[in-house]
């Protein structure tokens, strides 16, 4: 599995993490190129159904990141995100999605180095976990095999 390059999508807010990732760039700190960022105004905007859709489209790992508690540009978006995430996490867990594939982390506009760490740690972890095989596919295959062999 050594040549496996995970596909990681990052859902980030504009004011903290996106700006933090800009600072990573301005500070010329290097990190794994497997991660690609999608910008949202705030973590409060992130509809977690998108995570499922990203997995369905072939993502191996996901990062969700925004302002630290109390630092949200819009006061409370990250609290709403956090609350919704707690519910959604259970659901995803129940659906058989390995929670190790998802990183939820706060990165401020001043934490350029932290962004690089978050990305690298996530990519390393996903590399170990291997490519994501969706729940649906797993079921289909086993049923298929049983039918064929049976």
């Amino acid at each position: 599995m050594s040549d496996f390059e995970p596909k990681v999508v990052a859902f980030v807010c504009n004011w903290c993490t996106y700006a933090g990732a800009d600072l990573t760039g301005t500070s010329r700190i290097k990190y794994a190129s497997n991660v690609k960022i999608i910008r949202f105004p705030c973590t409060g905007r992130i509809d977690f159904m998108l995570l499922l859709k990203a997995f369905a489209n072939g993502a191996d790992g996901i990062i969700v990141s925004g302002c630290h508690p109390n630092d949200c540009h819009y006061t409370s978006g990250n609290f709403h995100a956090k609350r919704r995430w707690i519910m959604f996490k259970e659901l995803m867990d129940f659906m058989g999605i390995d929670m190790n594939r998802i990183t939820f982390s706060w990165v401020s506009a001043a934490e350029g180095a932290k962004w690089a760490d978050v990305v690298n740690a996530t990519v390393t972890r996903i590399r170990e976990l291997g490519p994501y095989v969706s729940y649906k596919e797993m079921v289909d295959k086993s049923v298929e095999e049983e039918v064929k062999n049976g």
Partner: peptide, 15 residues
């Protein structure tokens, strides 16, 4: 940042 726009971004990134 419409629902369709962000979804289009996800699809484009991964395919």
């Amino acid at each position: 940042y419409s629902n369709n726009q962000v979804y289009a971004e996800v699809v484009a990134l991964l395919n």
